[in-house]
């Protein structure tokens, strides 16, 4: 990440911490730095840890958009619903925990919407999810797609 809050990543930067969004630096930004208020819908269909890189990459896109003061909604369907389960701890698998990025996303103003039937089919209820996550029926998917400028799917 660049030293100046909001400064764009340069091509020759190292990448150890280059693409992971640093919330503390984003909080130093001045209002109006970057962005034009467009909205992006990020659809995640993959489980958090079975397809670790898809889920991790999806939330990184979300946090990058929010860092630039764009609007972003993360819509979780199919196995993607596992992404918002509170208290998840994959340390026994030797994998990093994505919860920090989920919390950053919400704190930066992102919305997370979970498709209810996908949640129910996996034996989960809203109380199993991180606080602030919305649960919605399938028809909301169409409305969310209509109300965002673009969408990307993982």
């Amino acid at each position: 990440m660049a030293d100046v809050p909001g400064e764009k990543q340069q091509e020759d930067d190292g990448c150890a911490d280059a693409c992971v969004i640093d919330l503390s630096k984003m909080q130093q930004r001045e209002p109006g730095d970057g962005g034009n208020g467009r909205s992006t819908l990020i659809i995640l269909t993959r489980g958090t840890y079975g397809h670790h890189d898809d889920a991790f990459s999806a939330i990184q896109v979300g946090n990058a958009l929010l860092a630039e003061e764009e609007q972003a909604t993360l819509l979780l369907m199919e196995d993607g619903v596992y992404f918002a389960v509170k208290g998840q701890n994959p340390s026994a698998l030797g994998l990093p925990n994505n919860l920090r990025y989920v919390e950053d996303f919400l704190e930066l103003g992102g919305r997370i919407v979970v498709v209810e039937p996908a949640l129910r089919k996996r034996g989960l209820v809203q109380g199993d999810l991180v606080e602030g996550v919305e649960v919605a029926p399938y028809p909301r998917l169409a409305r969310e797609m209509e109300s965002h400028a673009v969408s990307v799917t993982f």
Binding site: K8, Q10, V61, L65, V152
Partner: peptide, 30 residues
């Protein structure tokens, strides 16, 4: 660039003329 680094891909490994960049380049394209 993070995806490339995670896979030990360096600029010399890729077709010439493709920059390795951060996510903000992608959000700009969006």
């Amino acid at each position: 660039n993070r995806c490339a680094e995670a896979r030990d891909l360096v600029p010399g490994d890729a077709l010439e003329g493709i920059p390795m960049v951060g996510l903000f380049d992608f959000t700009e394209w969006l």
